[in-house]
Design a protein around this nucleic acid. Sequence first.
DNA 1: TGACAACATGAGTCGCTACTCATCATATTC
DNA 2: GAATATGATGAGTAGCGACTCATGTTGTCA
Lengths: 202, 202
Amino acid sequence: MAERTPSSAGRGAEPASQGLRVDARRNRARILEAAGAVFAEKGASASTEEVARRAGVAIGTVFRHFPTKEDLLRALVGDLVARLDDEIRVLADEGDPATGLFVFFTSMVEQAAAKKTVVDLLAAAGVDLPVAKPVEALREPIDALLVRAQRAGAVRDDAGIREVLALLVATCQGALRGGWDHDLRAATLAIVFDGLRPQAGR
Amino acid sequence: MAERTPSSAGRGAEPASQGLRVDARRNRARILEAAGAVFAEKGASASTEEVARRAGVAIGTVFRHFPTKEDLLRALVGDLVARLDDEIRVLADEGDPATGLFVFFTSMVEQAAAKKTVVDLLAAAGVDLPVAKPVEALREPIDALLVRAQRAGAVRDDAGIREVLALLVATCQGALRGGWDHDLRAATLAIVFDGLRPQAGR
DNA sequence: TGACAACATGAGTCGCTACTCATCATATTC
DNA sequence: GAATATGATGAGTAGCGACTCATGTTGTCA
């Protein structure tokens, strides 16, 4: 679903790697990959040393590329937001908008159930965690999808982008921290989606 | 709403204080009160020393009464669950069950918006945080309320206790970590409640 | 191929926090 | 109003995690 250009990551081959020595570029990539895995498993509170171990580099190397743990998180989250952004733009351009909105919603919750990073990201939509503004980038495309779905009469008019984002944050948080299995995720989302439909409004 | 017996806490004047010297009993109460405030503000990751400072006792005194930080959390959470249990039992015995369910739901979210402890508690409903089983105590009374609401035709039949608890955890998490204001809490809950109503089921 | 800047290394520093314990204070009991 | 056990105190210990830096290594380029 949604093929990307050449390399694995996308977005023009990591501009931040431009002009690095080949070994440095390789290590940077390894660190990002390891950090993605480690933080996805244990959440953002996992230690930087574990990332270094997983990446097969010394702790100092991690801090050379990302002077702060926050910088590392930011780089990861930026990449993730870019991917989500791609996904939602594809959904926005094709097919039924309400379906697209619900598909995107479901997709995020599925990812949240597996990746703590996504939840920490979503949490940032309201508070100022190590990752704050990036999520705002998603507000606009989601809003566009929402408005189109409302014009099509498939989503109630009194549900604004704030409410939709709130529900998105809530279900992602719940799915992860509550350890919902696949069935529970589906059933819970079905209830939320029904609540978003027009006839539900009183 | 829902008056309690004599002293402030309830549940038989804290059995754990029985047989303590008067100064010890006073300090224990102070520590619990301070811990409640501190953890509500900063979450369970607040330091034990801050609790001691707020309580006006030495750090060693805190550890004399609660050998482990987890013990302190457990004591707090137990108290909180007891209070919620009282609340829901009152709601279960009087008036419309669906209204009661939604009132209780709203009440928990309101508390979550102010108290991190509640959210950490709710999170425990699915994972094994320092506080695991206590929440299960709430499952039964909530379920009773839910079943009655369903019999009255006010809540859809395919929403089980698992789904309701999941939604409860999700909205509490969202309300706290997303920093929802009062309006957003109300609007979001309205959508969730609509989704729980019968006509919403497809 | 030599010389140098860029990079990697990992033991060490610093700060924070849960928890301990020798010492001192006081409630309780007779 | 002692005697004593129970409780309070707070400097100290231990462990962990983010971050540093002196030293050694290697890609790069003339």
